[in-house]
Amino acid sequence: MKKLDMHQSDVVCYACAELPSIMPNLETLLIGSGIEVVNAPMVLTKFLYLKHLTILISERTFSPPYNYVSLVYFFDASPSLETFFLDVPHEDVKHESVFWRFLTFGGAA
């Protein structure tokens, strides 16, 4: 199988842990998740032929402590990756004001 489209809960974790070993020739992967509670695991197996990866995150998908940086696993595990698309709802992203931090913690004396 060269192309896979999966939409289910905890699919990001599953894709990292299981897919490289059971679908070694995968070239295109689209995964969509409704609920992710575990960060993407770091595993030794690789997607050697994966060229196109799309990760779709539904609204309120990840628990607050989810570490989006754990998705970097896909870059290390996919040496042939040409395109990567990550769709995360803007409403879920919390922005911290750097300017406010500066004023509060030591800007002006």
Rank of each mutant, 00 (worst) to 15 (best):
residue 49 Y to S: 12
residue 58 S to D: 14
residue 34 G to W: 05
residue 93 V to K: 06
residue 22 I to L: 10
residue 77 A to F: 05
residue 65 P to C: 04
residue 19 L to E: 02
residue 16 C to N: 02
residue 90 H to D: 13
residue 37 V to C: 12
residue 50 L to Y: 02
residue 2 K to P: 03
residue 3 K to H: 10
residue 25 N to V: 01
residue 72 V to P: 00
residue 2 K to Q: 14
residue 41 P to I: 09
residue 23 M to W: 09
residue 53 L to C: 03
residue 22 I to E: 12
residue 56 L to H: 03
residue 90 H to V: 14
residue 75 F to R: 08
residue 37 V to P: 00
residue 38 V to N: 11
residue 21 S to R: 11
residue 17 A to R: 15
residue 99 F to G: 07
residue 90 H to C: 11
residue 50 L to Q: 02
residue 87 D to K: 10
residue 17 A to E: 15
residue 60 R to M: 07
residue 72 V to D: 12
residue 8 Q to R: 12
residue 48 L to A: 14
residue 52 H to R: 10
residue 17 A to D: 15
residue 93 V to M: 07
residue 91 E to D: 15
residue 43 V to I: 11
residue 33 S to M: 05
residue 92 D to W: 04
residue 98 V to W: 05
residue 55 I to V: 07
residue 72 V to I: 07
residue 43 V to A: 05
residue 82 E to I: 02
residue 30 L to V: 07
residue 63 S to H: 07
residue 75 F to M: 11
residue 55 I to P: 01
residue 9 S to M: 00
residue 78 S to D: 14
residue 26 L to D: 00
residue 5 D to L: 10
residue 76 D to Y: 12
residue 106 G to V: 06
residue 106 G to K: 06
residue 29 L to I: 01
residue 72 V to N: 12
residue 104 T to P: 00
residue 73 Y to M: 08
residue 11 V to K: 09
residue 21 S to Q: 09
residue 80 S to K: 09
residue 83 T to E: 13
residue 6 M to E: 15
residue 28 T to S: 13
residue 17 A to Q: 15
residue 74 F to Y: 10
residue 18 E to D: 12
residue 45 T to Q: 14
residue 72 V to H: 09
residue 27 E to I: 06
residue 30 L to G: 00
residue 87 D to R: 08
residue 73 Y to R: 05
residue 18 E to K: 15
residue 62 F to C: 11
residue 49 Y to D: 10
residue 95 H to N: 10
residue 4 L to S: 01
residue 94 K to R: 13
residue 25 N to H: 04
residue 36 E to S: 03
residue 56 L to T: 04
residue 90 H to P: 00
residue 11 V to S: 09
residue 54 T to S: 08
residue 62 F to E: 06
residue 25 N to C: 04
residue 105 F to M: 03
residue 68 Y to Q: 06
residue 93 V to H: 01
residue 32 G to I: 03
residue 94 K to W: 06
residue 26 L to V: 01
residue 26 L to F: 01
residue 28 T to N: 08
residue 27 E to M: 12
residue 26 L to N: 01
residue 56 L to R: 07
residue 26 L to P: 01
residue 39 N to Y: 01
residue 4 L to D: 02
residue 62 F to G: 03
residue 56 L to E: 09
residue 104 T to A: 06
residue 102 F to K: 09
residue 47 F to V: 00
residue 44 L to G: 05
residue 76 D to E: 14
residue 69 V to C: 09
residue 74 F to A: 07
residue 25 N to R: 04
residue 68 Y to F: 14
residue 19 L to V: 01
residue 49 Y to Q: 12
residue 16 C to V: 01
residue 78 S to P: 13
residue 95 H to R: 12
residue 92 D to M: 08
residue 13 C to F: 15
residue 77 A to G: 05
residue 73 Y to H: 08
residue 68 Y to K: 02
residue 52 H to P: 02
residue 78 S to Y: 13
residue 6 M to V: 15
residue 100 W to K: 14
residue 52 H to W: 08
residue 108 A to D: 03
residue 35 I to R: 02
residue 102 F to A: 03
residue 46 K to C: 10
residue 42 M to S: 11
residue 79 P to H: 03
residue 10 D to L: 03
residue 105 F to D: 07
residue 29 L to D: 00
